Simulated scan of single mutants.
Amino acid sequence: MLTIHHLGHSQSERIVWLCEELEIPYKLEKYTRDPVTRLSPPELKALHPLGAAPLIEADAILLAESAAIVEFILARYGHGRLQHGPDHPDFASYLYWFHFANGNLQPVMGRSMFIGRCGLAPDHPIQVSVQGRLDKVLALIEARLAQNDYLAGSAFTAADIMSVFSLTTMRLFHPVDLKPYPNILAYLQRIGARAGYQRAMAKGDPDLTPMLT
Rank of each mutant, 00 (worst) to 15 (best):
G132A: 13
R199I: 01
H174Q: 06
N183Q: 13
W17K: 02
Y31V: 02
T213H: 10
D135G: 07
R76N: 10
T3R: 05
I69V: 05
L145C: 08
L82D: 13
I141H: 01
A146G: 13
A52G: 09
F98R: 13
K136N: 14
G78V: 04
D34H: 15
F91Q: 13
A64L: 12
G78W: 07
Y94G: 03
G78H: 10
S166Q: 07
A195Y: 04
Y77H: 11
I191K: 04
M170Y: 12
S112V: 00
A52F: 11
L63D: 12
A195V: 03
P41G: 11
A101T: 02
I184S: 01
A143E: 12
S10Y: 02
H48C: 09
P54L: 12
R111D: 07
R81S: 14
P182T: 03
S93I: 00
H5E: 08
P35S: 10
L138A: 06
V70Q: 06
M109F: 11
V36H: 09
A200Y: 05
Q189T: 03
K179Q: 13
P180L: 08
S10A: 11
E13V: 11
L145N: 12
R133I: 09
S112A: 11
R14E: 05
C118N: 11
K179C: 09
A101M: 07
S154E: 15
W97P: 06
F156S: 13
D149M: 06
D87M: 10
G192E: 02
R133H: 03
W97Q: 10
R76I: 06
P86R: 14
L167F: 08
G192A: 07
G110H: 10
W97R: 08
L74V: 04
G192P: 00
S129E: 14
R117Y: 11
L105W: 00
L120P: 05
C19S: 08
L212V: 09
L138V: 05
Q198N: 12
V70K: 00
T37W: 05
E20L: 04
H5S: 03
A101Y: 04
F173A: 03
P41R: 06
E142A: 05
M170I: 00
A202T: 15
Q106E: 09
V16A: 09
P54A: 14
L178I: 07
